[in-house]
Design a protein around this nucleic acid. Structure first.
Lengths: 320, 320
DNA sequence: AGTTTAGCTGAACAAAATTGCATATCAAAG
DNA sequence: CTTTGATATGCAATTTTGTTCAGCTAAACT
């Protein structure tokens, strides 16, 4: 197996300093200058170390009180969509921060709800990436993480394989990956890939998962699926023309949640949509205005039991 | 029962705003000015709300990476004192912040280690107060908190009764208090108090606890036991002359951990020291240079199983 | 050696956060 | 309707934090 270059290495490899500085700054409440004296380093370096600590999730923030309005939305969502649980966070003021905020909440949820022995089937998306990043690194015995999606051929920072690996590493889980590209070049190749013994084995494990964590993608142009270029712009247009409102597990579906009839959906190497129902507890993590349509579609045709989202999306889902 | 004035009410009763502001500030990383626009309030008010949020523990900070040197100390402590677990945090740069730092760690420990059905016997101290304050408010089913100490007659911010109540409230536990003063005026009164049916009942419950959380006090002059004035300065001197190095559960003990022979120890209304051995899992939370002697004494004569402390104290305990 | 390059560093500046203080607001009491 | 006291607000001065940039060092390359 090739060397696993697990993201660019931190600029400050000295975890000791990061942790110490973070303690003094966040817990003890000292000023950065004071910390620089204590640690015997420059003030600016302290600042940079603290930034790195936040960046890497060495310090985590947890907001305890629930926001009243959000709690109401949670209740409405549970009722309307038959969820067992809903988490609604305040919407990010800055649109592009939505994944950050929702990911944060998802991390908190997962930290509290993954138990010994759980098998987690994992989807993919920017929001999930943030969730995984913020997950505390605490081993949970006999857990398993199984990726429901193939990988990207050229390693990208945002990659199903990478996400699953990182998740597994955080909770000390065994990790199973689909050793195939997300999209094969041709449908026949997809079938060939998927019928591989090793692939079938991983899909089988995913089917036995008790938790699925997944996200959905929209057609907005900052969507990774649009930008990474494994689907041609022309195909994206065709998909939309065919009624697709977005993707779930890289399958494009229409407003009713049904896969659209398009070649792309026959090239995808992923856990089959219709088999999601084998997984008892499906957690959908997604939010932001632009995701409302695809979220509604996903909710319509998949038995989601937990929804983690933001106010904007929650209101959008509940309107009309 | 008199009205329970549970600490001065927050200056900003609007939990909604606090939570929202905290999300935007800590999770999304917005500036206070930007938040003031979003929430439609003054910039300075945002600042004050955030302060209140920190103050009240609405936001919590968690530092994930362990500090290498601390981990080594933890190992040494476990070995040297036969502990099942040890937690060592960096020492506060500012001496007076030690309780804050250690309390933070204790809160994290308790949050992870209190389980459904646990019965927790609780001591008292500044460090414990901080620990309780930082504890996340999450109900844990069928838990019980039992105070091992009597209360202060004049309500003080730092009060065994208050601490137990707050702890119980945080985890949704039933709460049992010792309805007597910490120190009776005369030994005979102590005996009378302690033989009360209601008191015996609480002591009995404490004896059945599976977890005890306690701290120790030293003779340093910022120690609450010295300042609150229920022990006269002359008595404190006598105690020291008699060999006492500090107190555990308000019993004064010598360097070997044995109660000194002094009237004060016959006036204390608390769970009896020698019965601590009935509680299987005793967590000692304390730290700072000046506590080394009393901590060593406590460790010598009580089967502590978990020690939560700081670098200074850890080094002190391990030296010689 | 001479040159290039990447990585740090801190000085100087810009932005943001914090605090003390004066003023404004409001409700209860007169 | 006024007074009074408590509380809340914002201004301004100050401290702290964040950012940019130019210099420095040392390893890598020619």
């Amino acid at each position: 197996m090739a060397t696993m270059e697990n993201e660019r290495a931190s600029r400050f490899p000295d975890a000791e300093l990061k942790a110490r500085a973070a303690w003094h700054y966040y817990v003890e409440g000292l000023t950065q200058e004071r910390i620089s004296e204590i640690l015997g380093i420059g003030r600016i370096k302290v600042h940079r170390i603290l930034s790195a600590a936040r960046e890497e999730g060495v310090v985590q923030f947890r907001i305890r009180d629930s926001v009243v309005e959000c709690v109401q939305l949670e209740e409405s969502l549970k009722q309307r969509f038959g969820l067992s649980q809903a988490v609604v966070v305040p919407s990010a003021a800055d649109r592009s921060n939505a994944p950050l905020m929702i990911g944060h909440a998802a991390a908190a949820y997962l930290a509290d709800n993954v138990n010994i022995g759980d098998v987690i089937a994992l989807g993919w998306g920017r929001t999930l990436k943030f969730a995984i990043k913020e997950l505390p690194r605490r081993p949970i015995a006999r857990t398993t993480v199984v990726s429901m999606l193939g990988g990207l051929t050229h390693a990208q920072p945002l990659n199903p394989t990478e996400s699953a690996w990182e998740f597994a590493e955080k909770i000390g889980a065994e990790c199973f990956l689909l050793p195939v590209p997300v999209y094969a070049d041709r449908p026949e190749q997809r079938d060939a890939f998927m019928s591989q013994r090793s692939v079938q084995d991983v899909v089988f494990r995913a089917r036995r998962a008790n938790i699925a964590v997944l996200s959905v993608g929209s057609f907005s142009n900052d969507s990774p699926i649009a930008n990474y270029g494994f689907i041609k712009p022309s195909e994206l247009e065709e998909l939309q023309a065919a009624g697709a409102v977005g993707d779930i597990l890289c399958h494009f579906i229409d407003a009713e949640g049904r896969p659209v009839d398009h070649e792309v959906n026959r090239r995808v190497c992923a856990y089959p949509l219709q088999e999601l129902s084998d997984i008892p507890n499906i957690i959908l993590v997604s939010g932001g205005q632009e995701k409302v349509a695809i979220m509604r579609a996903a909710l319509a045709n998949t038995k989601i039991s937990v929804l983690i989202t933001d106010e904007d999306a929650a209101k959008g889902l509940l309107s009309r």
